[in-house]
Structures are given as structure tokens and as C-alpha cells.
Computed example of a mutant assay.
Amino acid sequence: MNATKILQQGRQPMIRFLGKRVTPSQIDHSPKVHPASPNQALPESFASYRQKAQQHGPLNQSKFATGQIGGVPGSSLGPIEAGKGNYFDRSELPKRFQRLAWTQAEIDAVESGGASMFA
């Protein structure tokens, strides 16, 4: 316990700040356009922004305007088949890309932590 006190007394921070800590007298909190904004203009209101916003699809679709989860049947959302060249599961891929079956030797090696390979 005494050794810890001795070590802490000589501690010097590695970061050195220049100057005195000063809080600014005035801070501007007015809204500003983000520098990477495509149109360099603030929206008039949040409602107008939401009409144009996209998040995983358009937010202003009128058929989803019920405001309730499940207000629209799932069949109206579109097809659930994967497009050409797309697959939902690895088992749907061509045989050469599917998972290989484990051999008994591989199963034994995993269960023994690899020790059975060298015994």
C-alpha cells in the first residue's frame, strides 16, 4: 500500500495542454448546413425533410401511411423470391459452393481439442 502511494506521487501526465482552460463566452448553436451536404441548404421543416428522406426505402410511401405495424399485408410488399443470382441460404447454392459434410476424423479432432490427431 505504501509503494502505491509513492508511485502515485511522482506521476506526470503524458499530455501537456497549452494555455489556460477557458470556456468560450459565446457559443453559436444556430443550425448550419453540413459541409458534405449535397444541396448546401437547410430543410424548411422536419416534415419536409421526411418527405424526401430514404432509410432502407422511401419513408413517404402512401400505402404505409396507416402508422401501425402490420397495417399492410406482407404480400403487398413485393415478391419474396430471391432475384437471379441471389440466394437466401447457402444450401440453395450450386453443389460446389455448399457446405461439405464433416468426416468422422474431423469430428473426433474437434471433440478432443486436436489431441487425437497426434495420438
Rank of each mutant, 00 (worst) to 15 (best):
G78P: 03
H29Y: 15
L18H: 14
G85A: 06
E106D: 04
Q54L: 10
G83S: 14
A65I: 02
G113T: 00
Q8F: 08
M117F: 09
I107K: 01
F118I: 14
F17A: 01
V110F: 04
E92S: 07
V110T: 06
L7S: 02
D28G: 03
S37C: 08
S76M: 15
G10D: 06
S112M: 01
F17L: 01
P24R: 04
P43M: 05
A53H: 08
P31R: 06
K63N: 15
S48P: 04
A105M: 08
W102A: 15
S76I: 15
G67W: 02
K95G: 10
M1K: 11
G74P: 00
D108K: 10
F118W: 09
T66I: 11
P94K: 00
A119W: 04
E44L: 00
Q40C: 03
P58Y: 11
F88V: 02
V33H: 04
K95T: 15
V33P: 05
K5N: 06
I80Y: 10
S76N: 10
P35I: 03
Q9M: 09
A105H: 09
S116I: 08
T66C: 11
Q26N: 12
P24E: 04
A109W: 03
T23C: 13
G71W: 00
K32N: 14
S62C: 06
K63G: 12
K52G: 07
F46P: 10
L42D: 08
P24T: 01
G114E: 01
I107H: 00
Q9S: 10
T4G: 05
V33Q: 08
A82S: 13
Y87T: 02
K84Y: 13
G70H: 02
N86R: 10
Q61I: 08
R90M: 11
Q61G: 09
F64R: 05
I107F: 01
H56S: 07
Q40A: 04
A105F: 09
P38V: 09
P43V: 02
P58K: 09
F118P: 06
L77S: 02
I6H: 02
P58M: 08
P73K: 02
P24L: 04
Q104K: 12
G78T: 04
A41S: 14
L7H: 03
M1E: 12
F88E: 07
K52S: 08
G83F: 10
H56Q: 11
A3Y: 08
K63H: 12
L18P: 11
Q8L: 13
P35K: 01
V110E: 09
P94Q: 03
G71H: 00
L93K: 04
F97P: 07
A101I: 12
K63Q: 14
I15S: 10
F64M: 07
F17Y: 06
G78F: 04
L100Y: 00
A119C: 12
Q40Y: 03
I27P: 07
S75Q: 09
S45P: 03
N86G: 08
S112Y: 02
P79W: 04
K84H: 13
N2H: 15
